[in-house]
Design a protein around this nucleic acid. Structure first.
Length: 490
RNA sequence: GGCGCAUUCGUCUAACGGUUAGGACGCAGCCCUCUCAAGGCUGUAAUACGGGUUCGAUUCCCGUAUGCGCUACCA
């Protein structure tokens, strides 16, 4: 195999969506797997749909996700420029070449005429194709039109009744008859090329070895092959990826969940989880492993194992993968990810060391990074409310007596470590002939206000003696009020 | 409508002619346990349909159905 060179070639008509991210990822994995190059090319030939900031968004998301391209905007690899809008001369030159060889012709038809023609064809149940009116123009007429400055496009001349076959790495052999192909516009009247022309020229000039793109391009591939043949160029390998779908099996779009990749990081998704997840949407290693790092994906990835059918983006599995990857992170890494949320919270003043301790207790209990702050806010503030159901279940008059006695004992514990605390609790339970649980639950409720959370004794250690005693004393002091409130809450 | 592509548990998927059709998410139950998670175990649930080919089809072929893509001077 020659050097592997692949590209992700988005059109900046919107921010990067999940499907695009997966296409880019597969290209990237394939390139790295084969020690090749991954190129980012911006296909900005449609000036009417251009979205400001889209290119910036692509680059930011790739940067976040760890998909680094070898060539592209601001990363010259000797095959630039990488914006198609800066390559207009190249397209013009090649278009001229096709024109001279008779593989393309000028079309002076107005968009009004084309539209009427299409409507008629639709009504008559004919295949919608250009009727080649301008192909039959005499050279005199063409000359006259040009002199009069009639705007025109350049269309490719598709041969009649010819079968075009190509081998797709994912779907075996695909076959088209050229009779079903339109004389595609190659150059628009504004001087910009269409996707088909620019794409083929750039893929060739940039020495792209494998075209890995979405399934929506399968039906245009025969046109591209024709162009390669017209130019006398070597045809690259093709792999058309299955589409990503909404939960109702329609093509993935907005309205249903977040399709823009940029929406995921702020929600607390790890790049490792997102990458892992989308890699598995249409690909699998052939065994039962499911957790992969980028390095492992690069090592294992193979085009031949890409699935054929479209896949629904299943958020629940992504969430599960997120918890898996969170648990594999160090406390320090999680702290770094949590930092922006801390800075935006009222807890900014707590020391880093304290957060690290909270993280080590919480990281196996959360699905998303920011939940460390929201689920366990009792690490940062005294409880103001007490879960009524928990109170009703756990607070008995005897609990008040025990809590009072325990508060007294806790004062003397030094160092205030979870083992020491637990020992005191266990001994007290034994002496009082009650179950540990009957002490633990009321204590938890008293110092956190809720019935869930990490191991009580470890939590007490992190909170510190002072805070624990303050909360305990408060709860004992308001014991009856809290109980009454809980009972009233039905 | 035409052309193309696809079709295994609800979802992501494995099985490339012979399996009690496997795994994962989700859901349910049990175990563990100071709660919640996590973990362990068990359960739940699928080859779209109809014909062939074959000793034998999830697997190969042909139809049908369904879904999706394309059918622009959009990509």
């Amino acid at each position: 195999m020659n050097e592997v060179r692949v590209r992700y070639a988005p059109s900046p008509t919107g921010f990067l969506h999940i499907g695009g991210l997966r296409t880019a990822l597969y290209n990237y994995l394939f390139a790295r797997r084969h020690s090749g190059k991954f190129i980012l090319r911006i296909e900005d030939t449609d000036r009417t749909r251009y979205v400001e900031g889209a290119v910036q968004d692509f680059i930011e998301v790739f940067d976040w996700a760890g998909i680094d391209f070898d060539e592209g905007p601001n990363r010259d690899g000797g095959f630039g420029p990488y914006y198609q809008s800066e390559r207009l001369d190249i397209y013009k030159k090649h278009a001229q070449q096709l024109l001279e060889a008779g593989h393309a012709y000028r079309c002076f038809c107005s968009s009004e005429r084309l539209e009427q023609m299409r409507k008629f064809q639709e009504r008559s149940k004919l295949p919608p194709k250009y009727d080649r009116l301008c192909f039959r123009l005499s050279s005199d007429q063409i000359q006259k039109n040009i002199e009069q400055g009639v705007p025109h496009t350049l269309r490719m001349r598709v041969p009649d009744n010819t079968v075009i076959r190509f081998k797709d790495h994912i779907r075996e052999e695909v076959e088209f008859n050229t009779d079903n192909l339109d004389d595609q516009v190659l150059m628009k009247s504004d001087g910009f090329p269409t996707y088909h022309l620019a794409n083929v020229i750039d893929d060739h000039l940039m020495k792209i070895s494998h075209v890995i793109r979405g399934e929506e391009w399968v039906s245009s591939t025969p046109k591209h092959i024709l162009l390669y043949q017209y130019f006398g160029w070597e045809i690259p390998e093709f792999a058309h990826l299955p589409l990503l779908l909404n939960s109702d099996r329609t093509k993935m779009s907005k309205r249903q969940g977040d399709v823009e990749a940029r929406a995921y990081p702020p929600k607390g998704y790890l790049k490792e989880a997102l990458i892992n997840f989308i890699a598995l949407l249409g690909w699998n290693p052939g065994d039962e492993r499911e957790i992969f790092s980028m390095e492992e994906l690069i090592r294992e990835f193979s085009i031949d194992r890409i699935h054929k059918a479209g896949a629904i983006f299943n958020l629940e599995k992504l969430n599960w993968l997120n918890t898996q990857h969170i648990r594999m992170k160090s406390d320090e890494d999680i702290f770094q990810m949590l930092k922006p949320y801390i800075e935006n919270s009222e807890y900014v003043n707590f020391p880093k060391l304290y957060f690290l301790e909270v993280i080590s207790l919480m990281k196996e209990r959360i699905n998303f990074i920011p939940e460390i702050l929201t689920f366990s806010n009792y690490f940062f503030r005294d409880p103001e409310t007490f879960d009524p159901a928990g109170v009703k279940k756990r607070w008995s008059p005897s609990a008040k007596t025990h809590l009072t006695a325990l508060a007294e004992k806790l004062k003397d514990i030094t160092p205030f470590t979870h083992t020491e605390i637990e020992t005191v609790y266990r001994i007290y339970a034994d002496e009082s002939k009650i179950k540990g649980a009957d002490l633990i639950h009321p204590t938890r409720l008293a110092i956190t206000g809720v019935t869930l959370g990490p191991s009580l004794f470890e939590m007490m250690q992190v909170l510190g003696k002072e805070t624990v005693l303050r909360r305990l004393l408060y709860a004992i002091g308001h014991f009856d009020d809290i109980l009454k409130t809980a009972q009233q809450s039905a």
